[in-house]
């Protein structure tokens, strides 16, 4: 380390001289050599501690027993440990309580983004607003076929929905269809059309869409008087709906509108409670052994459906 080594006269050379310049043969610096040996040592230690040598079907395991998937699972467990208190609380809260509690609401919304993206966004769009041409209901507006209250939304998710409208191509003449199309367009624009109304009543549309043409929640029939269209407000499209109906198996061109069932079990539970309340009975007295057979399909858990209902409710159209 002393500076005398920098004196070229005392340093051995390789015997090579070019144009009077000697090639010196200085030893490698000690710190550098030590680092080299140390790094070699680290390799050995690493081989002992970690999986390293590939064998035919496997590899050496290493003393620490470390694996990538184990590390991943540990990290995942950490995340779940943070979420657990919220998830447990959510499981015990009613959806109304969740909506009233800002902290739980923020958690429910925050943690539902992925859930919605995986299960719902394919039809309803990432933000709950599908492209108009796709023909799926928009979840962000205030028009609900089966109700926009939080429990109704939850029921729609749990039970699934499928409204029906018979095909009318064999029941109505072209002129009648034209008049009904005009009536529907006028209703949406708030224009009176008495001839259309008469036909609407005469041909039985009133049975499903209601006397005021505002739709009936129990059947999921569309409100014809608002600015929102289940399929399209285009006259040709309205005509198509009247001619071929919705979910009418007898018509090949019928519109298909089917919301799948996400939890049969939850649907059964919710319905049983709803009936009990309707009949002035205490829902706590329901005999669940009688109601549930135990093999109800469950694509999403109860908490997941709660979270999704809250998420959808908070798109901006929830009532």
């Amino acid at each position: 380390m002393a500076d005398s080594k920098n004196n070229s006269n005392q340093v051995p050379d390789t015997g090579h001289v070019w144009d009077g310049i000697r090639e010196l043969d200085n030893p490698c610096p000690r710190w550098w050599l030590n680092s080299l040996y140390l790094s070699g040592l680290i390799v050995v230690v690493y081989f002992i501690l970690y999986p390293s040598l590939p064998l035919v079907n496997d590899s050496t395991k290493g003393l620490l027993g470390w694996t990538q998937i184990k590390e991943f699972k540990e990290d995942l467990a950490k995340v779940e440990a943070v979420r657990a208190p919220f998830e447990n609380k959510l499981a015990e809260m009613s959806v109304e309580d969740i909506l009233a509690n800002q902290e739980m609401l923020n958690y429910a919304i925050g943690s539902s983004k992925v859930l919605f993206g995986e299960n719902c966004a394919a039809c309803h769009g990432t933000g709950g607003a599908p492209a108009e041409s796709a023909g799926y209901p928009n979840l962000t507006d205030d028009d609900w076929l089966f109700g926009g209250e939080i429990n109704e939304i939850m029921m729609s998710i749990a039970k699934g929905r499928s409204g029906t409208m018979p095909a009318h191509q064999n029941l109505l003449t072209t002129e009648e269809v034209d008049l009904l199309v005009q009536f529907v367009v006028d209703s949406s624009n708030g224009v009176e059309n008495s001839a259309g109304l008469a036909l609407y009543n005469a041909k039985g549309c009133v049975a499903c869409h209601g006397a005021d043409a505002k739709g009936v929640k129990a059947m999921g029939s569309a409100n014809l008087t608002d600015k929102i269209w289940r399929f399209s407000g285009d006259e040709d499209q309205i005509r198509h709906t009247i001619l071929h109906g919705v979910n009418d198996a007898s018509d090949k061109e019928t519109r298909v509108a089917l919301m799948p069932q996400w939890s049969e079990k939850m649907a059964v539970i919710m319905e049983a409670i709803a009936y009990a309340i309707e009949d002035d009975e205490d829902p706590n007295d329901i005999d669940w052994d009688d109601e549930l057979t135990g093999d109800e399909a469950e694509r999403l858990t109860e908490t997941e459906i709660k979270k999704l209902a809250v998420y959808v409710h908070q798109f901006g159209g929830g009532q």
Binding site: A129, D142, N223, D226, K227
Partner: peptide, 10 residues
């Protein structure tokens, strides 16, 4: 997403 929503009363 969405940028705006049309409501039933227009």
């Amino acid at each position: 997403q969405p940028l705006f929503v049309r409501l039933s009363d227009g």
